[in-house]
Amino acid sequence: MKSLSEIETTSKRASKAAGYSWGISEEVGKNIRILEMFGLPGIKNLTEYYNIKKENKFEYLKFVNKENKMKTYQFCPIISGISFLDQIQSLDKLQEIKFEKLAYPLLFLPFLSRGSEIVGKRLLLKLDNNQFILNFNISIFTNFIKNEIINVTNLASVRFLENSDSFSEHEWSQLYKLSEETFVEENERLKKGAAGAGLTDND
């Protein structure tokens, strides 16, 4: 079994050899480590992308907009991801962002996972029928459980999920009420002395 350290170093070096700058290669190294750690096929997708890239051109998306439509070539997942990560503070306002024809979109995913941590919001990534909820770069919840390569997605959409409760106020108050059964009702003496403070607030 390869260690994550080997995976990161080899992915970084391979990315440099594939034509990216050292700074971008460092990002890819970290990303493939993240994918493999979460059990997603990072090495598989990266290897195939770099093989295909030798013979094919991809479009480098430098500035991300609400709708990103390819001109001639499919979008490079790495440059699209770098731009997304770098620009995430301003993209947050757009709520939902779409990419048409994103190549090897699993390589785009870890940039979003890291972005989720930066903006403090969960992100929902839809790659055609596959969905991924990216939880602050701590975990990924998905219906994609195949160890396979996704060559391209016709439509990738990223939605910033607002921080809100996943339960109703009624459900919360029921649970809170139950938790109150661990509290002690204070009599007057306890009210005066049990907190440990003085008898006046400003002595």
């Binding site: 700058s21 700074g23 971008i24 460092e26 430098k62 500035f63 770098i82 731009s83 770098d86």
Partner: peptide, 9 residues
């Protein structure tokens, strides 16, 4: 960085 990613490191 969008114009100078060669200096990203």
């Amino acid at each position: 960085l969008a114009h100078n990613n060669d200096l990203r490191h």
